[in-house]
Design a protein around this nucleic acid. Sequence first.
DNA 1: CTAGGTGCTAGACCAAGGTCTAGGTCAACG
DNA 2: CGTTGACCTAGACCTTGGTCTAGCACCTAG
Lengths: 147, 147
Amino acid sequence: MADGDLSIGQVARRTGLSVHTLRLYERAGLLASEVRRDRAGRRVYSAWDVEWLVNCVKFRATGMPLTTISRLAQLVREGSGNEAERLTLLREHRQHITGQLAQLRDCLDLVDTKVASYERHLAAGGTGDPWQQEPPPVPGAHRHQVG
Amino acid sequence: MADGDLSIGQVARRTGLSVHTLRLYERAGLLASEVRRDRAGRRVYSAWDVEWLVNCVKFRATGMPLTTISRLAQLVREGSGNEAERLTLLREHRQHITGQLAQLRDCLDLVDTKVASYERHLAAGGTGDPWQQEPPPVPGAHRHQVG
DNA sequence: CTAGGTGCTAGACCAAGGTCTAGGTCAACG
DNA sequence: CGTTGACCTAGACCTTGGTCTAGCACCTAG
């Protein structure tokens, strides 16, 4: 066993995944290299496996589906010759990330506006116009605030 | 019917939600005001409802669960007096958003590094060291690149 | 030897968030 | 009048991504 080798429990602690999830990921083909086993059949993860898993966690955290990670892992497993396809996958995910960033910033704007307005409202002792509670109860009265 | 009123189909087109989802949201209590009905029992959305739904879409896109939106809607429905709780909900979601932003930026770094390395690799006609395909095949050979 | 901790597999279970179907109403168009 | 299109409800169904259980195998320490 090389010095970087870890048991599944250790990998779980290092990656933040549960051992159940680690096994699920393996079954789902997310690992770019076959996980070794010791004589008792227990998984032995290399430092490289762990680095890969950490990247998987980042991909997951940013919405990459298991199937896509699996596809990427497969390409890596297959070795040289498919770099263009890996690049495509990565570029697609990059797109996805920037889209999400935009949405998050958009929602952050909304939330900040609302938070500021509620803070003003509360500081003013309940006076003000935070989030209008009712839909325009008076037809003809336009210009309402929803957020 | 006020001039801003819309049918469910029109709201679906404007919000990007399906009519199924709109009905689901209503059942789940996401709407901050009771949706009116015409004499035939069909939903009539006000402009205010649509604005609210657009905000819901933003919340959903940034990971707010339906139950939380429902809670917020309930507070708004109940009217003044619970502004502090609304503020809490919003602040919590703000936290969530900034956390997600950090994760996205982290993953964006990773992806950018990988993309650049693959581009270099492909430009060099296949030479280089993009994403190491194999886990360290030679024990003792440290310093591998996983991503 | 035996108990505790950790691991194994197979497979059931679960929650969230949609999505779709069946069977029916209504209104407007030609 | 009949048919087309949008709408209604109730409820089944589906996918994703985990999470947990049962029943068993090791291994190490006491």
